[in-house]
Design a protein around this nucleic acid. Sequence first.
DNA 1: TAAATCAGTTCCATTATTTGAAACTTGATT
DNA 2: AATCAAGTTTCAAATAATGGAACTGATTTA
Lengths: 265, 265
Amino acid sequence: MAQPERSDGTVGKALDVLDQVAGFDRPVRFSELLSHSDYPKATLYRLLQTLTHQELVSFDSERQTYSLGMRLVRLAHSAWRHSSLAPMARSQIDALAGEVGETVHLAQLDHGQVLYVDKRNAASPVDMFSQAGKVGPVYCTGVGKAMLAFSGQAQQMQVIAQQSFHPFTPNTLVSAEALRSELEHIRARGYAFDNEEHEAGIICVALPILSQTAQVMGGVSVTSTTARHNLATLAALVPRIQSTVDEIAKEAQNWRFPEQIPATV
Amino acid sequence: MAQPERSDGTVGKALDVLDQVAGFDRPVRFSELLSHSDYPKATLYRLLQTLTHQELVSFDSERQTYSLGMRLVRLAHSAWRHSSLAPMARSQIDALAGEVGETVHLAQLDHGQVLYVDKRNAASPVDMFSQAGKVGPVYCTGVGKAMLAFSGQAQQMQVIAQQSFHPFTPNTLVSAEALRSELEHIRARGYAFDNEEHEAGIICVALPILSQTAQVMGGVSVTSTTARHNLATLAALVPRIQSTVDEIAKEAQNWRFPEQIPATV
DNA sequence: TAAATCAGTTCCATTATTTGAAACTTGATT
DNA sequence: AATCAAGTTTCAAATAATGGAACTGATTTA
């Protein structure tokens, strides 16, 4: 009764293991991986050997732990340059960050999550540790909600179903219903806020980057603190951000950007 | 006559192909890959299918081209957090960048190349497009020379043998001999310059990050333009950079990942 | 001090996947 | 319609992966 196999042979299995190593947010021992793995001991062992030899994972022989390897960092740079919005949005993001003097993020929707692909630190940086490659939740970030609000019906439903609705703060939206109604609001208004929904004291305003065919390509947000801004003063930045996202969309059109990643959910 | 096997079965072959895709600095067609590949058509085809399905490469069906996929960007973030110096050096790099007001790079030596793992843009940024994950040449960058100068004899020779000595500018060192003598000089002096050796108008000063056992862990550089600085004014920053690299080395010594919380399964 | 326990590694006959030459399909060009 | 190039599929043979069990070596327990 062969199910429609989802795994790509040995390569798929190796990448399963790679994901597992990535899933632990710290270096991890063989036995920990084994106890969380479906693979038999010898198989897991050999896959890790292969991955280590290939430098996709690095093995700390002193502590006997595995973590992801630097080869991924090198490869990711190439991925980022060729498959993300970041290179073509660069000058626009630079200009926006310079003018508003706050932290600017460029993000894309990926696997039901927000994938940050670029970032500019303001002169007065907010104390958050983000970087290209970081992923965040959709339901409680400005860019996440902005991108989702303008996504197609089908994708929107699928992504909502994937959310965990963890209540990070008292303001976090904690149900699909609340999120759906917020998304309608955002769609009507044209932009999204994050009103301390992910982290206390951190607020942001975000707009989607829409292609000519109204496809969501990504999102841009300006993040600040409640000490420096409130929602009204952030809203005042919307026209400036709008021109940024319009320009990025235009650039992307001209660059004939690879392909919308139809957010394989 | 089995050669000492270098490849890790199917996974190794798939990663060969991944490297090949990364090697083209643009989206690439199947036939281009095929003509540069040792693998037969059907094999290459299936490996690409697998990689695409796994999102390590993305396929632009409109233009029929392959490029690296965003899954790598997600994975790399985890690699960067756990296996690079960047997270533990973060606050020191921030402080340095703030004080000197110029672009600061944090790099590590990897495969005979300079791997940039972090970067801070100055208030007055130099016009260069770098990012975590970018690799650069050792022989004509400040960090590259600083790290190499303090590496062990064996590694130094090995890395020198790997250099291509492309003359980017009139100042580029173009021979192993010239590089070796420069490295001696750097070792004696304790820091390295990049005197427009990679790009005209761009100069930098760099120091290695040395562990307690005098192992090279990475390097830190301050980059500027000839319009704003000369080698003498950059040299004046050395004591400040020295304290940064000392602090980073100390941090790295102490760094331990948060202890495991025994998972309730 | 021996025995037991645990973490990691290797073995090897069995099983499953990968291989690649060739045939085929598709789409563009003559 | 015929030709050509690019991409895709087939299938028996070749190869690699599998995993239960046995082994090692380090630490803990009796």
